[in-house]
Amino acid sequence: MAVPAAGMSQRLVNWARMKSPWITIFNSGACNACDIEIIACLMPRFDIERFGMLVKGSPRHADILIVTGHVTLKQASRLRRVWEQIPEPKYVIAMGACGASGGVFHGLYHMMDCVDRVIPIDVYVAGCPPRPDEIINGVVTCLNLVHEDAAHGGKEWRQKKAVPVTGTDTNICKVVP
C-alpha cells in the first residue's frame, strides 16, 4: 500500500489511535442481548481493557460507536445526533444481525431495518448476539481499518464494499503491529 510520508508526530498519533480505542455503546432499540454481551467483554473473563478499550458514557470522548440493534424510528434521529457528537476520526461497528439488516425484526412497521440508512457503518459483526470473542474480533477488524485509513490518510480511499475483511477468526484476529 502506498504510504504517504508521515511525520513522526503523525505516526505517533496513529500508533496511539490503535492502542486506545474508546467505545461508546448506543442501543438503538435492540433486545439487550448485544448490550450484555458487550458488557461481558469488559469483565474479567475477556477484559478488553488490556487492548486499552474503555467504555465511555459521553460520546464526545469516544472513538468507536457500537450500535446494537436495528434502529427504531424514534431512535434514528438520536443515533444520528450521537454520531455527530463523536469527534473525528470516528468509526461505527454494527452489532449482530439486527445492526446489519434488521435481523429477525426485518420489515416491522416501526423500524428502519438497518443502521446503514442512518449512519455509515465501517465494520459488521455477525451473530445474534455475537459472542464476546466475536465482538473483540470485530473491534480488532475496526482497528485494522483505522491503521489502513491512517496509512492512506483518510477514509476516502475505501469505496464501499472494496475491501472485504472476512474469513475465519484466525486470520481476522491478527493485530496489525
Binding site: 432499540g29 427504531t72 424514534k74 431512535q75 438520536r78 416491522l108 412497521y109 416501526h110
Partner: peptide, 11 residues
C-alpha cells in the same frame, strides 16, 4: 419508554 417499540406483536 417508547424508543424501543418495534411492533413485535404485529409481527
Amino acid at each position: 419508554l417508547s424508543y424501543n417499540h418495534r411492533g413485535v406483536e404485529k409481527a
